[in-house]
Amino acid sequence: MSRVGIGRFVAVLAVGALALTACGSKIENSGSTSPSKAACGTVNIAVNPWVGYQADAAVIAYIATKELGCTVTKKNLTEEVSWQGFGTGAVDVVLENWGHPDLKKTYIDEQKVAVEYGLTGNKGIIGWYVPPWLAQEHPDITDWNNLNKYADKFKTSESGGKGQLLLGDPSFVTNDEALVKNLKLDFKVVYAGSEAALIQAFRTAEQQKQWMIGYFYEPQWFLSEVKLVHVNLPAYTEGCDADPAKVACDYAPYDLDKIVSKKFADSGSPAAALIKNFQWTNEHQNAVALDIAVNKLSDDDAAKKWVEANPDVWQAWIKN
């Protein structure tokens, strides 16, 4: 660029800038002007890697920010790591906890850095599922006694001559290897390695009418897209899963609950009350999750949509 060119360029820039300043709105220092904000402060919510959880977090964050004036920081973490965060102050809230007696023992009983904070109202169902087309064409497949009959059909390149039972997210403690052995099924457990891989496998199986059986769980947004069918294993009875090596029954249903750090529970923050009161149904969660995962709404937009549609549900959460 020539000397003149640059000079002109700068001049144009400066004039343009001046012109623009005339019509721009100024940034206001938000500071600590709002009193409610001072009362609430910052809430660190761990977000575990599944969309149902993301839906919980979206709605809580939306209400805490908009209604209570809190500052919400979401941290994308695995479950294990989230619990570590209670000890260090990095995490205040785990919104959807699936069991984890071991972690409860460590962080609630031993280290005393976290406390249980009530149920979310969601019911967790873990088990084996098949794509709907399969359940329709072979209705008897939903009974585990018939699985061996079809084992051949479930063969893949990964299953070493047996039927393939696909497992999903490595975060979940599963009994499937023991189940296959104890129920004498002619199946091999294959690890999909991630929830994404599992969902993609079910999706492809339904689209292309492939044989497939795998581990899955509710609530899960994907069930709103493809209504997987649960395969009945020998029914769960109290204590039938006591010895992991000898398990021969279905998974226990979970009542999902909330955990918060001791510090947060004691802080008296209005957000703590909100989280304590937070309770909804699987349908609620799936609706928000579907908006996030399939309809591609941002967390905030999905939460807003739900909040506007269900005022009576959430208003109960913030009444003191």
Partner: peptide, 24 residues
């Protein structure tokens, strides 16, 4: 990364160890 998409074996164990406290 392979462990995340079905490679199983060591890759899966690293991933699992990362998220399951018993498998750390």
């Amino acid at each position: 990364v392979g462990g995340l998409v079905g490679a199983g074996a060591l890759g899966y164990l690293v991933v699992a160890g990362f998220s399951q406290s018993d498998l750390y």
